[in-house]
Structure formats: structure tokens, C-alpha cells
């Protein structure tokens, strides 16, 4: 750090180019992100608190918010257990196909949410899906019901915990784990006492990011949920429905709630995460 500061006096003098760059970047981000997002707040309070009170007193919206939170929490729990487990396997063990699995785990990030929904319908759809009719005759409906919404949400947020935990695991190495084991600790004890504390923050970031992503999933949920009012309609679907039915106030108020959660998640992560590695 020290030599970086002394050595680059030439570069650190703010020249005109630097001011131009600052200006360009700031204007770009204000026009693209800051101003539009700020307007959602303004539009949500356009009629004072009426719109916000309106949606919070609407039993269907409250049901949608509850469903969204339930689904998101379930999806995050599943993805956390799966993510930590698969990260440990990827970093600490050797097995055939590891490189392929490593690449496949990122697939959900670049698949369109509509394709995710379609893929789940093709397999779990009650009428013509591969497994759907069998599951349904066993009394378990997936598509157009809560399990489908959970599956879609888990799918889209799948890589987030893994992406946070794997780098941490690789950085810390496994000397401590080996030491614990050589002193007679069992696998569970080693994991709880040594591994988990060291990857704690990676897991926390992953959970916060997954939560934000899960609360906000729209396209995949739209395909698999059936969007039934008071049953399978989630918060993001409420935003769409309200806006298309000319209840802009209600749409903006619901959007504001979702925006606040998203921004809170970003701020939590950026405050918690150490600014300089090491």
C-alpha cells in the first residue's frame, strides 16, 4: 500500500481527464439507476400513505407477501445446505467429473427465467410432465402450487452461496481441519468447530444475496405458479397485476417494499464485507 501511494504521485494528481471520467460515470449511473429508483419512492408516496396502507390492508397482498417470504426462506435454507456441502466437496475432494460439475453449477445464472419455468413444467407438470402425473397420483402437486414456486426459486438462486463459500474455503486451506482430525475430532465436530467458523462470513454473504434474489424472482415463478389470487400469487406478481390493472399506486407501493429489501441487502453486504482482503 505504502509504495503505491508514494510511487504514483504523477498518476494521482487529479487532471482534467479524471474529472471528466468522474462526471461521465456519475451522470451515467444517476440517469440509469439512482434517479429511476428514487422515483419509485416518490411515486409510492404520491398519494401520501394511502397506497401503502391500501396494500397492507389488502388480504390478497398480505397473503402474497407471506407466501413470498415463506418461499424465499425455504429456498435459502435449501440452497445454503446444498451450497456449503457442494463447496466442501469441490474444494476438499477429488472425484471424476469435478470440472464439469463446477461449470454446470453456474448454468442457472445464465438461463432465462422463462426457460427455467418451462423446464420445470416439462418435468413436474401435472398433465404431461415426465414425473408430474406420477407425483400427482401420489397426491403431490408441484406445478401451480407452492412446491413448484420453491423449486423455481431454488433453481435461479442456486449458485450464489457456492460462489461465496468456495473462494473462502480455498483461501483458508485445510491445515486446521487436518490438525483437528489428527487430534481425534470426528467429521461432524471438525465441521462445526473448525470449518464452519472460518467460512461463516462467506455463508452470510451468500445467504443475504440468495435471499434478495429469492424474494425478487418473477419470470420463473410466473410460469410455474399459475398466479392464483390469494393462493400462489407472489409479491412480484402483485406488482405486475396491480400495474396492468391501472392501480399504479398499489404497484409502486409493493415495488417500494421489494426495493427496500433489495437495497438493504446490498448495504448489509457492503458494510459487512471487509474492504481490503486480509
Amino acid at each position: 500500500m505504502a509504495d503505491r501511494r508514494t510511487g504514483t504521485a504523477v498518476h494521482n494528481r487529479p487532471g482534467p481527464a479524471r474529472h471528466v471520467l468522474r462526471l461521465v460515470v456519475t451522470v451515467y449511473l444517476v440517469l440509469l439507476v439512482a434517479w429511476p429508483v428514487a422515483l419509485v419512492g416518490r411515486n409510492a408516496f404520491g398519494n401520501g400513505l394511502t397506497d401503502l396502507e391500501g396494500i397492507l390492508n389488502d388480504p390478497d397482498v398480505v397473503h402474497a407477501l407471506r407466501l413470498t417470504v415463506t418461499v424465499a426462506v425455504t429456498a435459502v435454507l435449501i440452497n445454503t445446505v446444498f451450497g456449503v456441502g457442494i463447496s466442501l466437496l469441490l474444494v476438499r475432494y477429488d472425484f471424476p467429473g469435478k470440472r464439469l460439475l463446477n461449470a454446470l453449477l453456474d448454468v442457472p445464472l445464465s438461463v432465462s427465467p422463462i426457460v427455467v419455468g418451462l423446464a420445470l413444467v416439462l418435468v413436474y407438470g401435472g398433465r404431461s410432465g415426465w414425473f408430474g402425473p406420477t407425483l400427482e397420483s401420489a397426491g403431490f402437486q408441484v406445478i401451480f402450487a407452492t412446491p413448484g414456486i420453491v423449486l423455481a426459486t431454488v433453481f435461479v438462486a442456486l449458485p450464489l452461496v457456492i460462489r461465496e463459500v468456495v473462494p473462502v474455503l480455498q483461501e483458508v486451506g485445510d491445515e486446521q481441519e487436518q490438525a483437528a482430525r489428527s487430534l481425534g475430532a470426528g467429521a461432524v465436530q471438525t465441521f462445526l468447530r473448525i470449518t464452519l467458523p472460518t467460512i461463516k462470513w462467506g455463508v452470510v454473504y451468500g445467504v443475504v444475496l440468495s435471499l434478495a434474489r429469492s424474494l425478487g424472482e418473477f419470470g420463473a415463478v410466473k410460469v410455474v405458479s399459475g398466479n392464483v389470487l390469494g393462493q400462489t400469487r407472489t409479491a412480484t406478481l402483485v406488482v405486475e397485476e396491480k400495474y396492468l390493472n391501472f392501480d399504479k399506486g398499489g404497484a409502486y407501493a409493493t415495488a417500494l417494499l421489494l426495493t427496500l429489501v433489495a437495497v438493504a441487502a446490498i448495504i448489509v453486504v457492503s458494510v459487512l464485507r471487509p474492504k481490503e482482503p486480509r
Partner: peptide, 25 residues
């Protein structure tokens, strides 16, 4: 610090809200 937060907003914001956000400006 502010720009850092702004850059992550599109990732965390639900996409339907992103559409609404752009529509408002």
C-alpha cells in the same frame, strides 16, 4: 461508496421492479 451501492442495485432489484423503475423516469 455511493457508486458501489448503485452498481449492485440492478442485481438485487426484482426484475419486474426494474421495469417499473425505468418506467417512472
Amino acid at each position: 461508496r455511493v457508486l458501489e451501492v448503485l452498481i449492485d442495485i440492478p442485481f438485487a432489484l426484482p426484475t419486474i421492479v426494474a421495469g417499473l423503475v425505468l418506467l417512472s423516469l
